[in-house]
Nucleic acid binder design. Sequence first.
DNA 1: AAAAGTGTATTAGTCATATAATACACTTGG
DNA 2: CCAAGTGTATTATATGACTAATACACTTTT
Lengths: 127, 127
Amino acid sequence: MIDFSKLKFNNKEPIYQQIVDFVKREIIKKNAVDGDELPSRRELAFILDINPNTVQKAYKQMEDEGFIKTGNNVRSVIQINDEIYAKIENELTVSLVQDFIQSAKESALSYERVITLLSRMWDEDKV
Amino acid sequence: MIDFSKLKFNNKEPIYQQIVDFVKREIIKKNAVDGDELPSRRELAFILDINPNTVQKAYKQMEDEGFIKTGNNVRSVIQINDEIYAKIENELTVSLVQDFIQSAKESALSYERVITLLSRMWDEDKV
DNA sequence: AAAAGTGTATTAGTCATATAATACACTTGG
DNA sequence: CCAAGTGTATTATATGACTAATACACTTTT
């Protein structure tokens, strides 16, 4: 069971999007596996202190992206195969790095500079 | 003189914000230096095919952030000192790396994995 | 059967963004 | 001088994203 109490919202992205991303990361971390049950819409809304429709929007998107399945009057369930898993992992790693590289290049950052900054900043706890 | 024709909008961020970011990157790349003149509000609006008020909003923010100066009935001018320059550079480099590190950690990416991905993907032209 | 808990749908309201249309005060160039 | 070009300000409108409030149909449980 995913522990949604660990989910803290920022105000940069839509709430429903942060929920989707959180579940994806839990999947990648193996904190959520195939068959795991998600809280009901109303239940999660209560836990996160948000509107049930916001949760519904998140669940709907996860359903559309294909990694949860919702039966009739049954709580949604994580449903992933190798393909979906690979797609999510790619999104959270390769695409993340790709976007970063693009941004860095737009700011004319050199590869060496990036590596230097990364090695220096990775273990700083202020991040 | 900054070549605004190179500025292509995406639809993820507000237009006025993309203008501000574009100017900042031009400053970091030394394509824009202290004293350089910006187009007038109406002129840039025509160049970018957007509303003059949107340009005004961008210019107003750059003025507030302190790296352009607008006299009376005179076109705005880039005005940067070492402090401002460092602030912008920090924003476009250190903060960029910081955000990336945070995202990577949230996805449980290891430092080694990140370095590997970076070295492999940096020179790929599809980015 | 009734109550409670599901997912779902509809409608409304709020907010940021973008655009539009003007208006004003000021400087500059002819 | 005066027309044209500056920056600036105000008001209005439209749109999309997001959230909220409510209602509905269905199943399960008591």
